[in-house]
Amino acid sequence: MSLDLNAVWFFLVALLLAGYALLDGFDLGVGALHLFAEKDEDRRVLLNAIGPVWDGNEVWLLTAGGAVFAAFPPVYATVFSGFYLALMLLLVALIARAVAIEFRSKQPMPLWRSFWDRAFAAGSILAAVLLGVAFGNLVRGVPVGADGEFAGAFFGLLHPYPLLMGFFALALFALHGALYLTLKTEGALLEKARGWARKAFDLFAAVFIAMMACTLFFIPRIGRALGEHPLLLLAPLAAILAVANLRRELCRGRDFQAFLSSCALILALAAFFAGGMFPALVYSLPEAQNSLSAYNASSSQKTLAIMLVIAGLGMPLVIAYKAFVYWVFRGKVTLGPASY
């Protein structure tokens, strides 16, 4: 494949979404595990483990959204209006997650805290599942009319494959979040986090096998892409290796290596799906000729070039700030007067 601006932007959007899954993925995972921590102090440690970083991590989703809007406006328009109800629920879930983190610590009443604990967990779980379902629909394909508009209905989005992908996203993020927590906790809570990671791994492994099998057997265009570009097989292979290594590190109790393996796993999966779906952004099922691709649904070459300059100036700075903030807040969480 030739590397033109359209392809560059296709893969940049994929990279932004991968960055989102890698970073906010563990925030959502911590939220999904939150209620398993029973003591107030443990819950505070969980919140403070993601406290300084979750908001910056969510920005990756906003940036991906902005990039799709600017680089592929028809895709942004079709997907966002087509997935209307699901996205409205996603917004409410993300709002609940955000305000719960901020509000919880502001009052000591047990009822207050347990309410926001539940909002935090429910918002995180719902967001993970909805993002997975939306992604599963894009992988499988959705009905698109000849006018480029979404031609399906809300309940059509609840096909078994996207639902499996929703469940997969939840299991992946719960595992990723538990591994992140092993880096941020100490003592009894660390043991607990390791226990969550092991349980999440078992669940994840089962869903991972099911998801990969369904993708290869029931999503013909992914199989075709693998046939046309055999190098692409390296991505699922890398994902399987990452999963195997993750299990090994988990058994040896090497927390940081296990977390790095789950990061590698997410990147490998992103490469697999991006490579398998290219160049279609919205694959039209059943009428493939109506698909919106990086070529028939892009902005002008001038806009793609301008955006590349903005990304080229901005992203190195972003990486630098992110490295800085993770460095400043490195190590185990200690609760202080400024903590949640």
């Binding site: 902005g66 809007f69 680089a71 592929f72 902005s299 002008s300 806009t303 301008i306 903005i310």
Partner: peptide, 8 residues
């Protein structure tokens, strides 16, 4: 989108 998306 071609115009408005880039400032966003």
């Amino acid at each position: 989108g071609d115009v408005f998306g880039s400032p966003l």
